[in-house]
Design a protein around this nucleic acid. Structure first.
Length: 556
RNA sequence: GCCGCGGUAGUAUAGCCCGGCCAAGUAUGCGGGCCUUUCAAGCCCGUGACCCGGGUUCAAAUCCCGGCCGCGGCACCA
């Protein structure tokens, strides 16, 4: 009906005919229906296929032209970035690529008092962005652009769009809340006087809280926070020095002034930001209007939560500063660094963000969802390694060889090479996971994965008593033998598996097979029947012998 | 309280602008099966959603009104 609007007047009639035909088709046998569809209406099948093959892409950007799009990512360098910040960063980058435009990285560090920039954060953020595969074309640091903001302030004052307020803030609020802002004395000041006061501010005549520069807005705007908002305030940088510019400036622009001005000056065409900035857009527009600038297109989106993780920047910061975390990359953190340390790939994070898209609503990402995306990326390249947790020794007797070497591929797809495991006879001690004890009590015959079968004699002892049973997999199947991972005691390498669980870090101890010694830091492996883990450290003694391996559990 | 934005399965998302190809698609989760020298991967089957109530219309997830719920903002923070 959408395709044939000419039929609309006959809707009732058409509906009747359609119903008849549907009835007729349904009366045919299923096979006949299929045949008919393929023969006469193959285009229907084709169309379905095409629809299915369409890949998930971002919606088009309003008013965007290829080659002319400029986006920006503007973090506050008071901490490292986390998954929530990654959203605007990834989306901005994605749109830049989509439209062959530019991406600007801008550090918004104009509050040395309450959001004191962390000196190392600038570099941490750059590193995390690079790791995410984000490439930016220009970079700015706001604390290094103070003169620009001062020039704008002067312009606003000259045009009568702003004024200096040197009364106590309670006084301002009194006028504002009574709806008398139009009669607020500082607001009525002449341009010359404002400019003089501005110079005094810059020269340091005022202390913190004694004077601000306000932008004139609709004095009766329904949202009181928008009315004559503060664009510049005084910060005592003697007490709160800025990590980059120390105490060079005392007059500091607020977020709305600095960001608003920069977006125009840097030629930003599209702003992608979280919805807490919605009101800010409105504030900034007063500056734009005064200076006759065009406001960029803005897209707002909701918050992102990752199930089981601490997301709030302030909470993360608190834990970090309290020293209870192992660093900004603590695997319990949803920081980019934390997720990386836990074994999540940049590609998985990107896919997740693209999947969530640009909706207004908040999204609580389930951990299973992120894990599934990550799994599909790491599974083909993760070596399979056998490890046992909370190890239990098993003494296997009557082994019919002196020494046997088992060559086992690192991956069932056969593409990652293989390693050798040597088992000596006539008896050998191996370790299994304590979680497999129950299995061994229930089943007489057990297959040691990729090797041979053993018969359990006595689980009541330590070590558990067992004897060689047979070699082949077929034999194992015949006995319905469960297949478990195992580690030869002689070559067992101590393994510490760190399992993040909410705000807890559980440490499990066990052994990994000898081949684990050749693993490198950052490598992501699959601990067979346990799950994926990232190698966090391979610790050696002075002679270079591996003494301990630390792995961080990623997900199943 | 005031201002602003939303509400599709357990989770995420498509569809909403432009009403009919939607008895609502996809991914993940969950249940079952096949396959498999892993509890991984792969394959098959199943499960499960349009916040509620009215209205407009031949036809509403889609448009209109009311309600409910959630989120954001209400700083000399960003």
């Amino acid at each position: 009906m959408a395709a044939r609007p000419d039929l609309r007047p006959y809707a009732r009639e058409v509906a009747r005919i359609v119903a008849e035909i549907v009835k007729e088709v349904n009366s045919l046998p299923l096979e006949k229906q299929k045949q008919l569809l393929e023969k006469e209406y193959s285009w229907v099948i084709e169309a379905r296929k095409q629809k299915e093959e369409r890949e998930k892409t971002l919606p088009p950007l309003p008013g965007a032209e290829e080659g002319k799009v400029v986006t920006r990512f503007a973090p506050n360098p008071d901490f490292a970035i986390h998954l929530g910040n990654a959203r605007p960063a990834i989306l901005s980058h994605e749109y830049k690529v989509m439209y062959k435009g530019k991406l600007i990285l801008r550090f918004e560090d104009t509050d040395p008092r309450t959001k004191t920039p962390l000196p190392e954060a600038y570099e941490l953020i750059r590193r995390d962005l690079k790791w995410l595969g984000i490439e930016w074309d220009e970079e700015y640091i706001q604390s290094l652009r103070m003169k620009t903001y001062y020039d704008i302030a002067r312009k606003l004052l000259e045009k009568g769009c702003a004024y200096i307020d040197d009364l106590p803030s309670q006084e301002y609020k009194r006028y504002r809340d009574k709806g008398l802002l139009e009669k607020y004395p500082p607001r009525l000041r002449g341009i010359e006087e404002n400019l003089e006061l501005w110079d005094k501010m810059l020269e340091g005549h005022f202390a913190e809280g004694e004077a601000v520069l306000r932008v004139k807005t609709d004095p009766n705007h329904p949202d009181p926070s928008i009315r004559d908002w503060v664009a510049f305030r005084i910060i005592d940088t003697g007490k709160h020095p800025h990590p980059l510019v120390g105490d060079r400036y005392v007059v500091w622009p607020t977020y709305n002034l600095a960001a608003g001005v920069d977006d125009h000056l840097m030629g930003v065409t599209h702003i992608l930001r979280a919805k807490e900035h919605m009101q800010n857009t409105e504030k900034q527009k007063y500056v734009y209007k005064c200076l006759d600038w065009k406001y960029p297109e803005v897209m707002h989106f909701g918050r992102l939560k990752l199930e089981g993780f601490v997301m709030s920047k302030s909470a993360l910061k608190k834990l970090y500063e309290a020293g209870t975390a192992s660093g900004i990359d603590d695997p319990r953190f949803a920081t980019i660094a934390g997720l990386r340390r836990r074994g999540f790939t940049a590609e998985a994070i990107r896919k997740l963000i693209l999947e969530v898209g640009v909706k207004y609503t908040d999204a609580s990402i389930s951990f299973a969802n992120l894990a599934a995306i990550n799994r599909s990326i790491i599974d083909p390249r993760a070596k399979r390694i056998m490890a046992v947790i909370d190890p239990v020794p098993v003494l296997v007797e009557a082994i019919p060889w002196k020494e046997e070497v088992f060559e086992i591929p690192y991956h069932p797809n056969g593409k990652l090479g293989s390693r050798k495991i040597t088992v000596k006879g006539p008896q050998a001690t191996i370790y299994v996971s304590s979680s497999d004890l129950e299995t061994m009590e229930r089943n007489k015959v057990i297959r040691l994965m990729e090797a041979f079968n053993i018969e359990i004699i006595d689980t009541g002892r330590k070590p558990i008593k067992a004897k060689y049973h047979s070699r082949s997999l077929d034999e194992a199947r015949k006995h319905n033998a469960p297949i478990i991972q195992w580690v030869v005691a002689e070559h067992a390498t101590p393994l510490e598996l760190v399992v993040p669980e909410g705000l807890e870090l559980r440490r499990e101890h066990g052994f990994a097979e000898e081949a684990a010694k050749s693993l490198r830091r950052d490598e992501v492996v699959q601990l067979v029947r346990i799950g994926f883990a990232r190698i966090d450290a391979v610790e050696s003694d002075e002679e270079g012998n591996v003494r301990n391996i630390v792995a961080i559990f990623s997900h199943e």
